[in-house]
Amino acid sequence: MSAAGGTIAPDRILHDMADLWVSLGKQGEGDAGVLRACSMTLVVAAEESDDEQAIGETLAALMPEHPSRAIVIRFRAEDQRSLAARVFAQCWMPFGHRQQICCEQIEITASDASLPDLAPVVLPLTVPDLPVILWCRSPRLFQLSAFSQLTAIAQKVVLDSAAFGDPAAALGDMVGAAAAGRGLADLSWTRLTRWRELIAQIFENRAQLANLPLVSDILIAHRAAATPTTAYYLAAWLTDGLAKIGAHPRVQFRSDGGEPAWRLSRVELRASDRPDAIASISLAAGTCAEIRAGGLVSMALLPALNDYALMREELAIPGRDPAFEHALAVAAKLALS
C-alpha cells in the first residue's frame, strides 16, 4: 500500500494490517491457521541507501526470538515533504508444524523534511502495553534535531557508535542524549560483551583475583587508526571495576591496524614489577582468542558479531542497562581527556 499525495494516515495502515491478517488466515490450510506473535514494537530508522535486503534479513532472523511489530523507516535527504508506507508480514513455520507464526512489518519511506511529521504517525502504530525499541542505523539521523521526537517514543534507542566518524564526538552526543533521559544502547558496547565476560571469568578464580589489586597498567590494542569507542568503553569498564578495589591503573591504547577497524586485538592487565601480564586476551587468527592468566593458556571463540547477533542481545534487555550507562559516562571523559 502506498499512500497517495505523499502522506500517510495511521488508521489506514492499521486497516491494511487488519486486511493482511485476514488474507493470511485465508491462506492457512484447513485448521492450521496463523498465529500472530508480538513482544515489542521495533522501529528501525535507516538511510534510503542502507542495504534494504540486509535489514530485512536481520529482522527476519530476529523475529522467532523477539517477535515484534517492525516499523522500518527509510529516510532520504530531500527537502520536499513526502511519506509512503506499505505493510507486509514476516512468517515462519515453527517446528515442522503446519501452523505459521507471523509478525507484522510496516515500511515507511520518508524525506528528511517529513521527519517532524513522523512521530504522530509512528506513535499510534506502536503496539499497546509493549516496549518500543528504536534502532537508529544512521549517525546522520541521530544528529538531526527533529529526530528526538522519534526517540521520545522509545524506551530504548539502539545506536552503533562505530558508524560515527569521530568516536569522541559520538560518545559526547550519546552522553547528551542520556542526560536528556533517553534509554540508550550502543552496539559497540554490545560487541564487548564476550571480551568483558572473558575478563570477568579470569578473575572468578580466586588465585587470579588475588592479583587484581596489583594491576598498574592496562593496554588495549585495536585495529583502527584512531581509538574506537569499543576501546574507550573497555577502558572505562576496567578502570571503574579496578577502582572499586582500590587500584588506579594507567591506560594505554595502541593501534595495531587491520580490519574491521572497530575490532579490538589485545587486552593486557599488568603489574609494574612483573615481567608477564597478570592477564591477557589476544585475538589470534580467525575467531579464536587466546587467554593467558597465571601461567595457564585457554582458548575461546570470539567471532565478529553481525547485526543480528548484536540486536538479539540488545532486544533481550528492553529496559535500561546501568553498566552501560556508567561506562558511557566514563568513556566519554576518557575520550575527551
Binding site: T193, R196, E197, I199, A200, Q201, F203, E204, N205, R206, A207, L209, A210, L212, P213, W237, L238, G241, L242, K244, I245, E313, I317, D321, P322, A323
Partner: peptide, 18 residues
C-alpha cells in the same frame, strides 16, 4: 573480602568458580 568487580549479571552468564 575481595569480590570480582567485573560482573554484569544483566549480560553475563552465572559465575563459575574454579
Amino acid at each position: 573480602s575481595l569480590e570480582n568487580p567485573f560482573q554484569d549479571p544483566l549480560r553475563f552468564e552465572r559465575r563459575v568458580p574454579e
